[in-house]
Amino acid sequence: MEQRVDILTLATADLDAARRFYRDGLGWSPLLDVPDEIVFFQVAPRLVLGLFRADRFRADLGGTAAEPSLTGITLSHNVASPDAVDETVRAAVRAGARLVKPPQRADFGGYHGHVADPNGVIWEICHNPGWRVDPDGRVHLEEIPD
């Protein structure tokens, strides 16, 4: 696995308040805004911050996450294919990660699995067909229709 973080996802109890703060308070432009679910902001080349409604965050992890704390954040690593998701999740587990959610088709049209590192930090290993990065590092994130 390359040494990088692509998406920082934070669980938030009040998505509308978080959206207002980042968009209206800080003047950030959403990269993708899915009402009542999640909003993404590009925060650096190749780096996106996602604010995910807390109950949907827990559901996305298969209901296995406790109330948001350290588990209220997911670091995401995007790979080129579903096979690469499977391979990376297996490698992480072999290296001591705990399997949180086995790789599977995701609601957003991609494929993902979740592991927790030995400290409990949750990593999403993901193939997202709506994710594209230009040579200059600009991220394109598109919602994938059902």
Score class of each variant (00 low, 15 high):
A106K: 03
A44Q: 10
L10N: 10
R98F: 02
R132W: 11
D86G: 11
E67I: 01
D117T: 03
F108Y: 05
G96M: 10
L70K: 13
W123F: 07
L51D: 04
L8A: 14
P30Y: 14
F21G: 09
E142K: 13
A95N: 12
I122R: 03
V5C: 15
D33V: 09
R23T: 13
H77S: 05
K101E: 08
V93F: 12
T88Y: 06
N78Y: 13
V79M: 08
D16W: 09
L70P: 00
G130C: 06
L141D: 01
I73V: 14
Q42L: 08
R94I: 08
R90H: 13
L75N: 00
E37A: 15
E142M: 08
E67G: 07
G72D: 02
G137I: 00
A97R: 07
G110K: 00
P145C: 06
V93M: 12
D86W: 11
P103M: 05
H140M: 10
P129L: 08
Q104A: 15
A17L: 09
V85Q: 05
R105N: 14
G50E: 05
G137E: 01
G27D: 13
L61V: 04
D14V: 11
P118F: 09
F41Q: 07
R98I: 02
G113I: 04
H77A: 01
P68K: 10
N119P: 05
P82R: 14
L51K: 04
K101R: 13
R58M: 01
A84D: 10
R98W: 04
L15C: 07
W123D: 03
P45F: 00
R58T: 04
D36L: 05
D16G: 05
P103S: 03
I73M: 15
S69E: 11
R19C: 07
D146T: 12
H112M: 10
Y111F: 04
C126E: 06
G63S: 01
I144R: 10
R20Q: 12
R4Y: 15
Q3R: 15
A91H: 12
H112Q: 14
E87C: 15
H77Y: 08
P35K: 14
F108S: 00
H127N: 05
I38H: 02
G72P: 01
D16F: 07
D24T: 07
I125W: 03
L26Y: 11
N128F: 03
G72L: 01
F57M: 01
K101P: 00
V43H: 07
N78A: 06
V5G: 12
A116W: 02
T71F: 03
A13H: 11
D107T: 11
R4V: 06
A13F: 09
P118R: 10
D33C: 04
K101V: 00
K101Q: 10
P129N: 11
G137C: 02
P103I: 00
F52S: 02
V43M: 14
H127V: 07
G50V: 02
V115E: 01
D83E: 13
E87F: 06
D146G: 12
G110D: 00
W131F: 12
P118E: 14
A44M: 04
L26W: 12
P135Y: 11
A106Y: 00
L70E: 13
S69K: 14
V48S: 01
H127W: 12
D83P: 09
V115A: 02
I122Y: 08
R19N: 04
D14W: 09
A95S: 15
P103N: 02
D146Q: 14
S69N: 15
P103Q: 05
E37Q: 15
